[in-house]
Design a protein around this nucleic acid. Structure first.
Lengths: 198, 198
DNA sequence: CGATTCTTTGAAAACAGTCAATCTGTGTGG
DNA sequence: CCACACAGATTGACTGTTTTCAAAGAATCG
């Protein structure tokens, strides 16, 4: 189980972990199984842990006053999941995180997270890369949500993460893209027909 | 000029800078004046520097294939401005940055930026805070752009940053909010009339 | 198999965008 | 200092896109 985290760190830091480092990491993370439809975090609680997804799938969402849910993130194998704001500041989470498949996570809390960054150079390097990427990804997504039509948003996501369409429901994807399920459905059939007629 | 940067760092790190640290910072940053309508960075170039805005105002935007501009950020006094992706990775910038008022910036490049983080604890602490805030702000903006109507987006921005409406043109604000200037205009007058009738 | 949830489809309404004309304000040059 | 030019802002009529509401059709889970 922990092996996939080692591989992930080595790949993203472009460095090799020695045995001491691997041992430290093994001791630091703890395994948690979350079954489908169960919550990893519920809005209002403190999200003490972030998790590395060994396998499974989860979605993060928030709910507005009208009770509508907005999916803010998806996570599948080899992604990290957690309410970053709550994790970093130990404030009540503004999001809930629910498993959409039975999932295996490796958890770490903020103190140990900081500790690993100081103790293991590869961990720090990986985290720097992820922080950078995170900012850039948010930027791209904001841009997309502002400037693209419903169809373009759909095509954009389909191109980037085709797997999402196999693993998450249309409702979740629609709310991730900021459109209704009906609109997503129409955009999809329309696009499928277009491809057929060529 | 550099004083406002000291103040900023001390405030955001919640720490005091000693004289050596102040001297180091003074030597590291260099002043640059950018006049209205001039560019701090043009798309395609490498954004070697990021800048602390001592005074003035700037906007960052990108242009799509159709030639439309999307404002991605504003910066005024005591904000940082730069294409973070280009700065961190030394890749060609995907955004342009233009002064919308005569502006004074204090510039730093990536190497010196890293150096200050290792040499000055307050600088590191400030930067950690800003990174956190940046992620959270992007999250909030993404959320807003997905889930709010034109009117709600307008009200949201008006509440958060009323100053923007005084210092940036409606065109810029409309493109920041992801709507046409006409829609922004209508939403505004409608809202002004609503407030009047109470 | 039956119940529940998810997805699709249709029609009408709301919303935002486009195009064109007018109005406003600012800055520049004569 | 005025007049003119120009960019920005508003307004109106129209078009196109997306949402809403309602119902029917699939798919999934116990």
């Amino acid at each position: 189980m922990i092996e996939s985290l080692f591989t992930y760190i080595e790949k993203h830091a472009d460095m090799i972990l020695n045995q001491d480092e691997k041992d430290l990491i093994s001791l630091t993370f703890r395994h948690k199984k979350i079954f489908k439809r169960r919550f990893f975090l519920e809005e209002g609680n403190i999200g003490h842990w972030i998790g590395f997804v060994v396998n499974g799938a989860l979605r993060q969402y928030s709910t507005n006053k009208a009770g509508q849910q907005y999916t803010t993130r998806f996570a599948i194998e080899n992604w990290w999941i957690g309410d970053y704001e709550s994790f970093a500041n130990l404030t009540p989470a503004k999001h809930s995180i629910e498993a959409t498949e039975d999932s295996d996570l490796l958890l770490i809390d903020i103190e140990q997270f900081q500790m690993l960054k100081t103790q293991i150079p590869a961990y720090l390097k990986m985290q720097d890369l992820l922080d950078k990427r995170g900012l850039i990804a948010y930027h791209a997504r904001t841009q997309a949500s502002i400037s693209l039509s419903a169809e373009e948003k759909y095509l954009d996501l389909l191109e980037r993460y085709p797997e999402f369409f196999r693993r998450f429901t249309r409702n979740m994807i629609a709310s991730y893209l900021g459109m209704t399920p009906e609109t997503l459905s129409r955009v999809r059939t329309q696009h499928l027909n277009n491809s057929k007629n060529r």
